[in-house]
Design a protein around this nucleic acid. Structure first.
Lengths: 118, 118
DNA sequence: TTTAGTGTACTATTGAATTATATCACTATT
DNA sequence: AATAGTGATATAATTCAATAGTACACTAAA
């Protein structure tokens, strides 16, 4: 579930970690109250410094998505997974784009651009 | 059309510049053969060093999206704008997400995640 | 009270991004 | 030939986010 990061390629590692967790929450794989792996463990798994994981967790804390219990661990604090209908709709949308040979970076830009105007 | 960048906030400026141009091409606002503003001019507009603009243009050149004519200027070298139908479809998709109070960052992650699986 | 497991805090280092500056090279117009 | 406008190259310096190194603090259970 939380497996690997790309070091020094593209996004900062701590952002990658944040995104992983956000995705898992979004998909419903991590739910309110669930405990996250310890900072040290993740730092080993990802082969990065504990501070890098800490930074990710801190920021997620600021966003209110997780909460720390000193000496105990980090816990998910969110009830907001995405409606399965939305995922289905997204699948259809993406299938259509792929048929038309539009790639992921292009799609992201398209979404960003249209988002401003709609 | 090419107006401003956010310095020291999020993405590197040279990437922001690349994305701006890619978007304009995607939307059909910049077409094959169109000349881009001079490097010096853009560096003034964005209030960044010429090297930063050059870097963006160099990279776009490597990707084949633009071409340099030494002593003359940079020109768009691409015929790939997005089908207006796709833009319409994207509008509908986004309107639906907005109704369900899903925000842009969440949407981007959703797209990324579903992209892998479809 | 000891121990193992957890989060926290502080400082130092690194490296990509950006700037500053200067100079060279090519093109088109006059 | 001269000039103005353009891109190309080079080097050094700077800045700041990202990451690492290391030691401290809290919790729970034995």
């Amino acid at each position: 579930m939380l497996t690997s990061v790309d070091k020094h390629k593209g996004l900062p590692v701590y952002i990658q970690i944040m995104n992983m967790i956000k995705k898992e929450v979004m998909l419903g794989n991590l739910k309110d109250g669930d405990q996250l792996p310890p900072v040290r463990e993740l730092s080993k798994v990802f082969d990065v410094n504990t501070n890098t994981v800490m930074r990710a967790f801190e920021k997620l804390g600021n966003e209110g998505l997780i909460e720390a219990q000193h000496g105990v661990g980090y816990f998910i604090h969110s009830t907001s997974s995405v409606d399965p209908m939305v995922i289905e709709e997204t699948k259809k949308y993406i299938q259509d784009l792929k048929k038309k040979n539009i790639d992921l970076p292009m799609t992201k830009m398209l979404i960003e651009e249209v988002w401003k105007k709609v």
